[in-house]
Design a protein around this nucleic acid. Structure first.
Lengths: 193, 193
DNA sequence: TGTACATCAGTGAACGCGCGTTCACTGATGTAC
DNA sequence: TGTACATCAGTGAACGCGCGTTCACTGATGTAC
């Protein structure tokens, strides 16, 4: 007889997922310094040697955690976009707001996602997850005039601006209530194609 | 008789400065992971207990290193600015180019300067150094129209854009040769006051 | 000029800590017959 | 249905590592007299 609950075939069940979720939680609660292989294992309720059966060492676990971060990031942007009016400008604003909301609510993760040295950047799952995030942004930029920098000009402009704004807000360098992003964006010279 | 060389009053001479310079060099050569109190001491040619006589532990040394980073940063922006034509637009472009040149040539330092948790952010020398850097940027933005976001709108716009561009370039997310910053900047809707 | 003394920068040994990794093992699970 | 076996996820102890910090010390320097 198969048990009534879905697939829990082995000892833990789905330790791989549990370790990643533990890492996401640790990062959220204690920042980058709190994210260690041993603490992930402890939080998932297993011995600290257990992760070795699922990940290629610490860096492998970090890669999976950051990939999960990119998935949440993509999801947040999509949610904002799909709740917006159906016109190019509203959609672009919504994607940017989703970007900033993710960065605000997941500060340590947002910072970690740009520390490429902590991750196996050739990992396929990681690459897929980060490419998907970029895709959301690129699609939102696509309706606008490419200008002198070629097709990627608008994407680089928007992404730089929103990433910089998020980064400076995280560091406390700018006061987001005094200069909200909504007041910054209209300064861009964006024209529909 | 005072010796002919300038002030070398004690055993080492100026260990405080030497430790900071060792830190800057370690950061440049080995990145954030190579920057430890013990390695700074070794590089300065003293025992690893020596720094305790000059800095308030590891975090105190880090604060001084980052403050030195901000001084170099300010200097780089000023050099670019002073070499530019004497009109507001050329000066703003030059300051941005100085910003990007520093970020490019001091990648680990540029990243560290935004990790506020590694530093005693209330340290006066640190505060002075970082405020001076911001001042250079703010002055370059001052001639331009403030717009809806108040006086800081242009500063936040420019700083976000250049910091984001530097950050994405560092992470390898954007290709600076394909979309150079010079092609991005003209997309901003900047008008003289 | 010389002596005694206080200062304090730098030493070197020791400490405890948490880290990632290794490895022989155990014991639950799924499968073959 | 029952037995034997292979698999392999997770254990727990041990390892070596580099880290920051502490502390009694030493010895060069500057100062007081």
């Amino acid at each position: 007889m198969t048990p009534s609950q879905p697939a829990k075939p082995r000892h833990h069940g789905d330790l791989k997922t549990a370790l990643v979720e533990a890492g996401v939680a640790l990062l959220s609660e204690g920042g980058h310094g709190a994210l260690t292989l041993r603490k992930c294992a402890a939080r998932a309720g297993v011995s600290h040697a257990a992760p070795a059966h699922h990940f290629n060492g610490r860096k492998g676990l970090m890669t999976a955690i950051v990939a999960q971060g990119f998935k949440l990031f993509t999801q947040t942007m999509l949610e904002h976009r799909d709740a917006a009016d159906d016109n190019p400008h509203a959609r672009l604003v919504a994607v940017c707001n989703g970007y900033l909301a993710f960065a605000q609510d997941n500060q340590a993760m947002a910072a970690l996602m740009f520390r490429t040295e902590e991750v196996f950047s050739c990992d396929p799952e990681f690459q897929t997850a980060s490419a998907a995030a970029y895709q959301v942004l690129a699609e939102a930029c696509a309706p606008f005039n490419a200008g002198p920098a070629g097709a990627r000009g608008v994407e680089v402009l928007i992404w730089s601006l929103v990433e910089g704004y998020a980064s400076l807000a995280r560091a406390g360098t700018i006061d987001t209530s005094q200069t909200p992003f909504a007041d910054i964006l209209p300064r861009l010279n964006l024209q529909l194609r």
